[in-house]
Design a binder for these strands. Structure first.
Lengths: 190, 190
DNA sequence: CTTGTTTTGATACGTTTGTATCATAACTAC
DNA sequence: GTAGTTATGATACAAACGTATCAAAACAAG
């Protein structure tokens, strides 16, 4: 009944995500997104709305992606798996253009956007809760005490790891921190 | 021999620092800085150069300020003082406009500026080294093993604390993390 | 007072930004 | 084929940015 789209939505969102991840929100221009995706201005805005709406879509996709990674590492896991999770974050990157060099898109966005819109803030909150929940599950099932405090501690440490990666543009910069943290987690086992 | 300046340099730098701290580099316009300082465009640029040069001046001033804080806490200090240092960072803010709500200007800048100029990168490097050195001194004098790894770990954790503060716009958001970290530091004492 | 030097203030310019406009193209249902 | 609907592409526009320009102002030294 109407002209069909010339692109696959998921692919476009993924390409846009990488650009926002690498450059940040402000430094990513709508024109650059047109170039990256190969779409025209009207096609992009027709399908995904304006820049801020597209960004929220990207954040949601990022959160879902990270949920998959969290689940694969920590679903029904023990403290040893949790320790390995932190070591994995700081594992050496594969090649010069490994996106992991950019740290965490959500953390980066929190720092960049002084005044977040409500939808963006909601994504950040959900992202945070996602980590806390997973950490809490592992800690509880491992019979550790002081679960709430430790979960908050692990989240803060995770953000610290991402900070070091972002600064050095290299995951291995966080290896000392990650190894130390992994040892601390292992020490919680009775 | 020439027309005298109508301002005190330190006061201007301090006012500009607060604005960059609160809004970030990009969101701070040169016009806003004119308004904040009460100076005209030519006065500002004449005294401090263009926006990026003024920013480097601010970063240097911030680093010196933080060095004072670090020294007052950690010069010749023991592990207990180090533990209290982390708890102090997360101490409740005094009032709604406490600048500590904004986290750390240097950390914020690292996240915001995808492509840092060389002078900015140099400031960040010096800032990082300043923390590492102080941590290392305390750890060494306390007879702790694995000093290098632990110093890196403490730096990453510090950045994690600043991340949590920045996200929540409130130092107390980092209290669980800071308390946990303080306990870990105390546990290093033999 | 005059001269020389620096500071100051008003105005304006060129770029870049996100986005609006609008005609055209591509498809489906009938 | 025809009508109806959505996608596409080229062009343009208003706003905001950093910064250049240039004349006027304020002092010290002679």
């Amino acid at each position: 009944m109407a002209r069909p789209r010339n692109f696959v939505e998921e692919e476009v969102v993924r390409a846009v995500m990488m650009t926002f991840w690498r450059l940040g929100y402000d430094a990513t221009t709508y024109r650059e997104l047109q170039k990256i995706t190969g779409l025209g201005l009207r096609s992009l805005s027709n399908a995904f709305g304006e820049k801020d709406e597209l960004f929220v879509t990207v954040l949601r996709a990022y959160r879902v992606m990270m949920k998959g990674m969290l689940d694969s590492f920590l679903e029904g896991a023990d403290l040893e798996a949790l320790a390995q999770f932190f070591e994995a974050i700081a594992a050496p990157s594969e090649g010069e253009d490994d996106i992991r060099r950019e740290g965490c898109l959500m953390v980066n966005s929190v720092f960049e956007l002084t005044n977040m819109s409500d939808p963006v803030a909601a994504e950040v909150t959900a992202y945070r809760a996602m980590f806390i929940e997973r950490f809490r599950d592992v800690l509880t099932q491992s019979g550790v005490d002081d679960v709430e405090t430790k979960a908050e501690y692990l989240l803060g440490s995770t953000w610290g790891i991402f900070s070091q990666i972002r600064l050095a543009k290299d995951p291995v910069a966080a290896q000392p921190m990650a190894r130390m943290l992994a040892d601390i987690v292992r020490s919680w086992a009775q």
